[in-house]
Amino acid sequence: MPAKEVIVLQDLLGTNKKIASEIRVELGKRGILAVNLLSSPGAGKTTLLEQIAVRMKGESRMAVIEGDIETERDAERIRAKGVPAWQITTGGACHLEAKMIGRLLPAVDPGIEYLFIENVGNLVCPASYELGEHIRLVLLSTPEGDDKPKKYPKAFTTSDVLVLTKADLLPYLPFDIDKAVGEARDLNPRLRVFVTSAVTGQGLDELISFLRRSAEELRLSHA
């Protein structure tokens, strides 16, 4: 019986990448900076977004897409800050995919300047799926330990920004900032790092200034 060998060479994430790049272009044209937030569960993604919402209020318009396996809880927390939010419940899937974001784009108001996408809490799978973001931001909270970058390399090699959260707990934890940042930069020398605390407000203004500059650059590049 004749056998046939077919050389395919197909990127198995290719479909997702294609949809993601279409989303990136569309959002860029609309002047919306998209930020994809990755971290393990409990690192403080929603809390960081609440803090950004409070600080941007009255100056910039933002919207949030929340990804979780179940519940509307995170979207409700964001809406309570006066920010439009959509909840995607994946029903078990460990990451968001670009097509899920694409479906929501028509609902994003024209006046929005920042679209934050909070991925499912997971430092592994979301790293493989572009969502059309202009900036990928990975959070690492101090209680998780300073050894995480090398344990979960893909999340750190593919991110643009590292936000260390819960810095107010540093006096109580054996967390070595230099080690965590050093190992993250071994993986990704271009990583920008912000050391933050939602309790004391440390580092948040600097992070927001960076986001504003990035949004400005995006608009200029599409002007």
């Binding site: 019986m1 056998a3 077919v6 395919v8 893909k154």
Partner: peptide, 18 residues
């Protein structure tokens, strides 16, 4: 080192008992 690629597929193109 970041790829996930389907490189090739081998198949039979005629039934075992034709």
């Amino acid at each position: 080192g970041t790829e996930i690629v389907l490189e090739r597929i081998e198949m039979d193109i005629e039934g075992p008992s034709s």
